[in-house]
Design a protein around this nucleic acid. Structure first.
Ligand SMILES: [Mn+2]
Ligand SMILES: [Mn+2]
Ligand SMILES: [Zn+2]
Ligand SMILES: [Zn+2]
Lengths: 152, 152
DNA sequence: ATACTAAATAGGATTTACTACTATTTGTCA
DNA sequence: TGACAAATAGTAGTAAATCCTATTTAGTAT
């Protein structure tokens, strides 16, 4: 989805989404629209199951599989994204030296990189005040060099 | 674990780990030591199952549950940490406006915050060259205000 | 050295979240 | 309004973690 949808109203986002679907040759199904509406109506970063429970109030016999598939579709066309954070399978790191991580969204590999300036990011007081911060890092996502080549 | 273990040899890390276990009143079991050794011998950010497969060559009848439990223990005492990135359950976000995320490691909530300077982090060319970067963000972990209060 | 006990473990059952499969339905376009 | 690829519902299968219980063991006290 284009950046056109940032800072826009609900109706504008919805219109932008429908245009985005057409651009990608995706059908405008009631399920797809309901899932998108649900997602932009919350700031709780819901799981697929949470979206499923919410959207079921509107389309009672929608399947969980459709919700899962549709959320991945929204991610692919850029109408949504997956939130970074720990999940399953968890990945562990015994390297306590200062370093940062890159996640390849294709092969799933987590690759270390290091740049001192990124370890020294300053978190403003207004943010510090909201949380007890135990870890901060700069996190990158994209294609690793191996996967980037296959993409062409 | 104290920062004393950064930039140290394998033997030093191991000694530091044993001291760390004692400090926390944890028994020095062969399983625990083997799992720690396995973890600091790789930079592949392994899953519990991957650690299980590796450590089984040393302790053939170790259980997957022990590996899972032990990796969480290592995380608790600071001898390791969980790598950020997407996982299961996935969490989705339809808010494309520039913002950052904080993950509460206790209640699992992902909370939005926003600071322009953090959206403008510069990734040095040497890092840009290694990957095709599609998303970059500053990621924070810790306790949210609700959970921080309960911790006291 | 030996006995004791809380901590840790092994092995298996259960749960959660996702993924695969197939028959049926539907949005789009001619 | 018919054709048809795309999408969906419903269900089965799989992966990863967690729970449970009987057994073993590391650390400590005798
Ligand atoms: Mn790492
Ligand atoms: Mn967000
Ligand atoms: Zn890759
Ligand atoms: Zn919390």
């Amino acid at each position: 989805m284009d950046t056109v949808n940032q800072n826009s109203t609900f109706e504008e986002k919805l219109a932008g989404f429908e245009a985005c679907c057409r651009k990608h040759g995706l059908k405008l199904t009631p399920q797809r629209i309901a899932i998108y509406k649900t997602l932009i109506s919350t700031d709780s970063h819901p799981t697929a199951d949470e979206v499923y429970q919410m959207v079921r109030t509107e389309i009672s016999n929608i399947s969980l599989d459709t919700v899962n598939r549709t959320l991945l579709t929204l991610t692919e066309i850029g109408a949504a994204f997956q939130v970074e954070g720990t999940g399953q399978p968890r990945r562990f790191d015994g390297g306590l030296e200062d370093h940062q991580h890159f996640l390849c969204i294709k092969c799933g590999k987590v690759i270390d990189f290091q740049h001192d300036a990124l370890g020294d990011i300053h978190i403003p007081d207004e943010v510090q005040g909201q949380f007890k911060i135990l870890r901060k890092t700069v996190y990158l996502e994209g294609f690793c060099s191996v996967c980037a080549e296959k993409e062409l």
